[in-house]
Design a protein around this nucleic acid. Structure first.
Length: 432
RNA sequence: GGAGAGAUGGCCGAGUGGUUGAAGGCGCACGCUUGGAAAGCGUGUAUGGCAGCAAUGUUAUCGCAGGUUCGAAUCCUGUUCUCUCCGCCA
C-alpha cells in the first residue's frame, strides 16, 4: 500500500506511475472515496464524544432517565453512521490497494518485458564441438528426471528428480547458505561493488512454514488466487510460492528496534505455483513446474539503507553466478515488469543453449515500505520515532540454475562438469 | 482428535459493568541528590485514525471478530493462539 497522504498530495504523479506500470486507475475517484470515509469518520467521532460524555456523567450510579434516553437515540444514529463508515472504508481500501508502488525515477519506462534494459553481460556462452542436448534430453538419458510417473501421481508439471541431479541441487543449497552466512565473503562482495558502509551482517538461515493464512498472505501483497496460489481445502491456508511469502510477514504488527536492523534471512522452502495461463510455455523439462525448491534472501532495513540492501542482493546474485561460471545478463526491469509492489527490480537471466537465449533464473525486488505498511512492520528509530521498515527480497537459487548447469557444462558423452564452487558439496567429484 | 485452563502496556501483574489507556511493580529516559557511583526522591514512558504549523484536542485499541447495554478489559457467542491431561504420530 502507498501512503494515503502522499497520494493526496501527488495524485497526478501517482496516476502517471500507475499508467507506466500498465494499470489504468482513476486516482481522483479514489481520493473521493477517501474524502467520504473521512467525513463519515469525523461524524462517528463526534457522536462517540457525546456518548462518552453521557456515559461519564452517569458514572456515579443513579442514571438519569433523560440521559439514558439520549443515549438510546445516540446509539441508533451511531450504528447507522458506523455501518456507512465501515462500507465506505471497505470500498476505499479495495480501490486504494490497487495503486502500485511508485517506481524510482531511474526505472526505465516500458510496456512489456522486452523493454527491460541489459546492464551487464558476464561470462562467455559455451561453444560445443558436438550437438548439445537440452536439459531434459540429457537428464532423460541419465535417468535424472521422471515426469511421466510424476504425472501419474500428481499431474502435469510435476517431476521426480533423481540421482546425481538431486545431489547437485543439495549442493546448490549448501553453497548458497555458506556464501550468505559468511561475513568475510559478504564484505568482499560489498567492497568489490562499491557498497562500502553497508553492514556485512550475515544472513540467518531459515526454514519457514510453507503455508500462510489468508489475511497474512494478503498483507504481503502476494496472494494471487487466479494464477498462482494454491489453496488448501477446508483450511484458511495457502501454499507459499516462495520463502519470501512466509518470511516477509514474520514481523507483522511489530515495532523493531533500530539496533536490530538490518535483519537478513536466507530461507529455504518448497514453492508451489499454479502457473495458470502458462500452458504450453516451457512445457519440457523442469524449467517451469508447479513445485520446486528455492533459496531466497529477505531483509528488513531502515529506509536510508534499503537501496544499498537491494544492490547488495543483486551483487550477491552476480557473485554466485560468476563463481558457478554460468554466462548471465543482469537486467534493470522496466515499469511494466517490476510488479505492483516494487519501486525497482532486477532480473538475472542465464544462458540456456537449448533455447539460444538468456532466461530468467533470479529476481531481486526493491519494495520500500509498500509491503511493510499493510503488514505494520515498523522500526523505532534511535530518536524514538516510529516508521515503516523497508523490505527487500531476492532469489539465491531456484532449480533453474540446475537447468543452466546441465546445459552449459555438458560433455560430449552426456555427462556434466560440476562447477568448482559446488565440488566441495559433491564429494569433490568433477563430473556427474 | 477429546477434556480443562488461560490470553491485559517493553516485561510482571491488578482489575467481573460507569473519570480504566488501564492500579502496583520492574525496566527505560530525564532531573534532583553525590567528589563519583549505588541507593533514595521526583517527573515522564503504547500505537493507529481525524483536526491542527504546533501546543494540543478527539477517537479507537485489554488476542481477534461479532453481540447485549445509555455505558464493556469486565457479560454472551464464535474464532485464533498458548499451557496441562488423554489419544495418535515423523
Amino acid at each position: 500500500m502507498l501512503d494515503i497522504r502522499f497520494v493526496r498530495e501527488n495524485s497526478e504523479k501517482v496516476e502517471q506511475n500507475a499508467k507506466n506500470k500498465g494499470y489504468n486507475l482513476d486516482v481522483a475517484a479514489i481520493l473521493r472515496l477517501d474524502d467520504s470515509r473521512r467525513t463519515l469518520g469525523q461524524q462517528v467521532d463526534e457522536l462517540r464524544t457525546r456518548r462518552n460524555t453521557i456515559s461519564n456523567a452517569m458514572k456515579g450510579g443513579k442514571p438519569s432517565d433523560e440521559l439514558v434516553e439520549e443515549g438510546k437515540q445516540l446509539k441508533i444514529k451511531l450504528t447507522e453512521i458506523e455501518d456507512a463508515l465501515c462500507s465506505a472504508e471497505e470500498t476505499f481500501i479495495e480501490e486504494f490497494k490497487k495503486l502500485p508502488n511508485m517506481a524510482l525515477d531511474s526505472v526505465p519506462v516500458g510496456t512489456t518485458e522486452d523493454e527491460n534494459v541489459v546492464i551487464k553481460t558476464v561470462g562467455d556462452k559455451p561453444e560445443f564441438d558436438f550437438t548439445p542436448k537440452s536439459h531434459w534430453e540429457l537428464a532423460g538419458a541419465r535417468d535424472w528426471i521422471d515426469k511421466e510417473r510424476a504425472a501419474k501421481i500428481a499431474g502435469a508439471r510435476f517431476a521426480y528428480l533423481k540421482g546425481d541431479l538431486v545431489r547437485l541441487e543439495m549442493a546448490l543449497w549448501q553453497y548458497g547458505m555458506d556464501v550468505l552466512g559468511s561475513e568475510v565473503t559478504l564484505q568482499k562482495i560489498i567492497d568489490d561493488n562499491g557498497l562500502q558502509g553497508i553492514s556485512s551482517k550475515p544472513f540467518t538461515p531459515i526454514i519457514p512454514p510453507a503455508v500462510a493464512r489468508t489475511d497474512v498472505f494478503q498483507a504481503t501483497g502476494r496472494l494471487n488466487k487466479e494464477e498462482q496460489t494454491y489453496k488448501i481445502e477446508d483450511e484458511d491456508l495457502w501454499l507459499n510460492a516462495s520463502a519470501e511469502h512466509t518470511m516477509a510477514p514474520m514481523y507483522m504488527n511489530e515495532i523493531l528496534p533500530q539496533a536490530k536492523l538490518p535483519i537478513r534471512m536466507v530461507g529455504y522452502t518448497t514453492a508451489f505455483r499454479r502457473e495458470a495461463g502458462t500452458y504450453g510455455k516451457d512445457a519440457e523439462g523442469i524449467f517451469r513446474l508447479h513445485q520446486f525448491n528455492k533459496l531466497e534472501m529477505e531483509s528488513f532495513s531502515t529506509p536510508e539503507t534499503s537501496l544499498s540492501e537491494h544492490l547488495l542482493m543483486v551483487a550477491i546474485q552476480e557473485y554466485l553466478m560468476t563463481q558457478l561460471g554460468l554466462p548471465f545478463q543482469t537486467l534493470e526491469k522496466c515499469t511494466a515488469d517490476i510488479g505492483r509492489p516494487n519501486a525497482k527490480g532486477v532480473d538475472i537471466n542465464t544462458w540456456l543453449p537449448s533455447q539460444g537465449e538468456y532466461r530468467e533464473t533470479h529476481t531481486a525486488d526493491y519494495i520500500t515500505d509498500y509491503q511493510a505498511r499493510p503488514m505494520k512492520t515498523r522500526v523505532r528509530r534511535e530518536s524514538g520515532e516510529v516508521e515503516y521498515v523497508h523490505t527487500n527480497d531476492a532469489t539465491v537459487f531456484s532449480e533453474r540454475p540446475l537447468v543452466a548447469i546441465l546445459e552449459n557444462f555438458q560433455t560430449a558423452d552426456g555427462h556434466v562438469i560440476v562447477p568448482a564452487a559446488l565440488r566441495p558439496y559433491m564429494g569433490n567429484r568433477e563430473t556427474i
